[in-house]
């Protein structure tokens, strides 16, 4: 397979590859999240017995990683590529290696290794076993068999793949500084680098994240999101207006995602002490658990369809 020439070509090849393997190619979730796992297409769909196969790009934000666009490989905003298949197919490792081949990594030249790395998300109350995948000593993906999400045992088990797109692309394209990476085809009439697209944004967000964001407002938003999440889930399952059974797991989960991101922003502002940190994480986890409890009562979550 010939080598891709740009960041977007790598994304497109992954999309094509996983579509070819039968995954539904979803679009990014329209909220600020810390990682692709937060997309309800992973977190919630990993619950219950309904089969599922999806792949998507998820823009992700980690405010504390902002470096004003100066760092060769750290940004507060970056992309993850996420694949989730339930139940995990027996040949998932082979399928994954196929995706590396699809983006131009030649197994005859490179050293691919599966190195123990157990995954855990304290905020989602989730964990799984798997590996970080090394290509010539560099971590290029995370490979996880979900065992628990939101405190629920996963049955069947989902296989989850997460690619750090910038890092992977930099390696494949042989670029040393992320901002210099070609975003579109370098031969395009208007060639754009990753820096052309994001450098300015990185500086702006770094300044806001670290120094300007109003912490009182953020804290209030956090509490509002927390309260709204609990309130939504406390509503009776039967909708008085339509008379239908409607469990609002997804809108509640949106509030959980919001609370999680607000916590990350507060963390970046440096206003959360070590002891408070655990307490905040515990509060988000409690929301995630409530949402998971609600989701397994929906049809998508494996509950029996409501009688018509």
């Amino acid at each position: 397979m010939d080598k891709p020439r740009s960041f977007q070509e790598i994304i497109l090849r992954l999309q094509t590859y996983w579509a070819g393997q039968g995954c539904a190619v979803l679009q990014p979730y329209d909220m600020e999240v810390g990682a692709g796992t937060f997309h309800p297409g992973t977190t919630l769909r990993a619950l219950g017995s309904t089969p599922w196969a999806a792949a998507y790009v998820q823009p992700s934000r980690r405010p504390t990683d902002g470096r004003y666009g100066d760092s060769p490989n750290r940004m507060q905003h970056y992309y993850q590529y996420q694949v989730i298949i339930k139940p995990s197919p027996p040949d998932l490792q082979a399928l994954y290696l196929g995706s590396l081949a699809a983006i131009g990594i030649d197994m005859g030249l490179h050293d691919i290794r599966f190195v123990e790395d157990d995954w855990e998300s304290p905020t989602l109350g989730a964990w799984g076993l798997g590996w970080e995948v090394w290509c010539d000593g560099m971590e290029v993906s995370q490979f996880t068999y979900f065992q628990q999400v939101g405190g629920h045992d996963c049955h069947p088990v989902s296989g989850e793949l997460t690619y750090g797109l910038e890092r992977l692309a930099m390696y494949v394209l042989g670029v040393d500084h992320v901002m210099e990476m070609p975003f579109n085809d370098p031969a395009a009439p208007i060639p754009l680098t990753y820096g052309d697209v994001f450098r300015e944004a990185e500086a702006q967000y770094a300044r806001w994240n670290f120094d300007v964001a109003d912490t009182d407002t953020l804290m209030k938003h956090f509490e509002d999101a927390e309260a709204e999440c609990a309130r939504i889930l406390a509503e009776p399952h039967e909708d008085p207006k339509t008379g239908r059974r409607i469990v609002m797991a997804l809108p509640a989960y949106d509030q959980c995602i919001k609370a999680s991101h607000l916590f990350n922003l507060l963390d970046a502002r440096g206003v959360i002490s070590v002891t408070e940190r655990q307490a905040y994480i515990g509060r988000v986890r409690a929301l995630a658990k409530l949402c998971a409890d609600a989701f397994v009562q929906t049809e998508a979550g494996g509950a029996a369809p409501a009688a018509a």
Binding site: P87, P90, G128, L129, Y145, C154, P156, V157
Partner: peptide, 17 residues
């Protein structure tokens, strides 16, 4: 530490093939 995989209930350190 052991795990389940796919739709089965067998536990092994990683999927047993």
């Amino acid at each position: 530490k052991s795990m389940r995989w796919g739709a089965g209930s067998l536990r092994w350190v990683r999927p047993l093939h």
